[in-house]
């Protein structure tokens, strides 16, 4: 088994990285903050997928690469696999994690939250959650891009604590 650190390290780092971009750098430009957070995730996904596929033959099709993300890749990151994979067979894949780790452990800092413009509390919480999700979306996009599959990735959290990542492969 490789080196490990306490889970609090990655949780603290992610919370702080997201808060730095959302509240300190781009407090009034959430779309710019989102793009930066996604870009950081992209780099991480790209590098991790490079490392985890070094000794593997190339994937022959998209489904095989997506399955790798669902099984091996997700297990390295979260010690569990994606729970459900659906596809429309036309380039869209939905990867559902029934209990996504980074959502169950996420805490919203009430003090910094009060700075943004959203009027109602529910909206703020949703905004904060979606900011956190740009990072794993970026990771998936980066990982697939390293495997030669350009795509767009978004997250759907209508069934918390489940989280679905929607991957749309670009033709």
């Amino acid at each position: 088994m490789g080196r490990e650190v306490s889970e609090s390290c990655i949780d603290s780092l992610l919370t702080e990285m997201v808060s730095t971009y959302c509240h300190r750098f781009y407090a009034n430009k959430p779309e710019l903050a989102a793009r930066r957070i996604e870009a950081i995730g992209y780099q991480v996904g790209h590098q991790l997928s490079e490392r985890y596929t070094m000794e593997r033959p190339r994937f022959t099709d998209h489904l095989e690469a997506i399955k790798f993300i669902c099984k091996d890749f997700w297990s390295e990151l979260f010690k569990k696999q994606i729970d459900n994979l659906k596809t429309n067979h036309r380039g869209t894949f939905v990867l559902q994690d029934n209990r996504f780790r980074w959502l169950t452990r996420m805490s919203v800092d009430p003090q910094s939250e009060s700075q943004d413009n959203f009027a109602d509390g529910e909206n703020k919480a949703a905004q904060a959650t979606s900011m956190h999700l740009y990072f794993p979306c970026g990771i998936i996009r980066g990982a697939l891009s390293n495997l030669g599959i350009p795509c767009a990735v978004s997250a759907d959290i209508s069934n918390l604590p489940a989280c679905s990542f929607v991957v749309r492969i670009k033709a």
Partner: peptide
């Protein structure tokens, strides 16, 4: 304690530093 793969942590930190350097 709950532990995670250090690579994820190391690379996330590295990517954050790199993004900060760019920005």
């Amino acid at each position: 304690v709950e532990r995670v793969n250090a690579e994820l942590f190391t690379l996330t930190y590295g990517a954050t530093v790199r993004q900060l350097l760019t920005d």
